[in-house]
């Protein structure tokens, strides 16, 4: 991985195997701009033709490799993104911690205190159940919604960069995704600390081990969507407006402020509601952070296991299926359109 020195005069391709495309060889050379804009054939010629099927497949599934080679670029960009948001503010790095706290206070006050939304029949230790239920939901949702809105404009906003520097532009929506996940992680950490220090809620146990898995699946899911939307936004600037509206609709279609197990009427719609991938995501998060929450059955409400650790696995499996689908679709769309980015942004 060392820089090829002057002595070879740029004589041969650094790649020992002829069959490898030059792009990979270049990546390994450890310097120089890496363009993923145009297609390179086996002899190193860069041509105008659109990517072929096998090239798209290679790009989609070769992304982890690209990520490994460019990990420094990704890390630096994510760090920069976070610094841009928080550096220069008085509270600095406390902001991502305060955000979820304020959210929790606001939601708890309005929904639980003022409107009296309560989960009936919970044990004493789970008294603040509704507040925590909403908090976890809103935290997970915010990470998704913010990533989608910011991700949609991530390529267009960095137009100048795309025009002037050759670098793998697929990392732009990735940065936004990772920033969303890191912010979410702050909220999760805050929650765990608060549960450990106060009697607000029983501190989460071994189920916390699910957190990395949930983050990974959520990351793939949001990244795939963000890739698709950011590509679409390059050609169709209305995308951002549509996304802003749709995320609001999506938020209410997801059990964030309401508990499906509570009303019979909603319970009837569960087969439809459970198509929603974000439903599975918030339920997985709740399982990991809240443990089991059982709502007793009464004549008025359906009752049942509103949150459970057991269900994390199945929920994640459904989400993972969605995630892979969105990822493959979004990435393929991105690869197909990428060569026109610099002309359109």
């Amino acid at each position: 991985m060392t820089t090829v020195q002057s002595t070879d005069g740029g004589a041969v391709s650094p790649s020992p195997t002829e069959s490898l495309p030059d792009l990979d060889a270049l990546d390994h050379a450890g310097g120089g701009q890496v363009s993923t804009v145009a297609q390179r054939d086996a002899e190193g010629w860069v041509t105008a033709r659109p990517p072929r099927f096998h090239e798209i497949v290679r790009r989609v599934f070769g992304f982890p490799g690209l990520l490994r080679r460019h990990k420094d670029l990704v890390l630096t960009s994510v760090k920069r993104d976070l610094e841009v948001r928080f550096s220069g503010t008085i509270l600095g790095w406390f902001w991502p911690l305060f955000h979820p706290l304020f959210l929790f206070v606001v939601y708890y006050f309005i929904f639980v205190h003022l409107l009296g939304f309560k989960l009936q029949g919970l044990p004493e230790s789970q008294k603040s159940g509704m507040g925590v239920y909403m908090f976890v939901g809103i935290s997970a949702w915010t990470a998704i919604a913010e990533t989608l809105v910011r991700g949609t404009s991530s390529i267009v906003d960095n137009g100048n960069l795309i025009k002037k520097l050759a670098f793998p532009s697929e990392i732009l929506p990735l940065n936004v995704t990772l920033v969303g996940l890191v912010t979410l992680l702050f909220a999760v950490a805050m929650f765990v600390v608060a549960c450990t220090l106060t009697p607000m809620w029983p501190a989460p146990g071994w189920a916390l081990l699910w957190v990395p898995v949930i983050l990974l699946v959520q990351g793939v899911f949001t990244y795939g969507l963000a890739l698709f939307l950011s590509t679409l936004q390059v050609f169709l600037r209305d995308t951002l407006q549509v996304v802003t509206v749709l995320t609001t609709v999506w938020m209410f279609a997801t059990p964030i402020f309401w508990v499906p197990e509570v009303t019979k009427r909603v319970a009837d719609y569960m087969p439809i509601l459970s198509i929603n991938p974000v439903y599975h995501l918030v339920q997985a998060w709740r399982g990991a952070l809240m443990g089991d929450v059982v709502i007793p059955k009464t004549p008025e409400i359906a009752g049942g296991l509103a949150v459970s650790v057991e269900a994390i696995g199945p929920h994640l499996a459904v989400l993972a299926a969605w995630a892979v689908g969105f990822y493959v679709l979004g990435f393929a769309f991105f690869v197909l359109c990428q060569r026109r980015f610099a002309d359109e942004v």
Binding site: Q33, A38, W45, V46, A48, K163, L165, A166
Partner: peptide
Amino acid sequence: SGTTAPSVGRYRARGRVASLLELGAG
């Protein structure tokens, strides 16, 4: 420099490319 794709024709560059297309891009 690889920031945009050609519409016709082809090119081949051997070795690493670095470009300075704009002052302080990035």
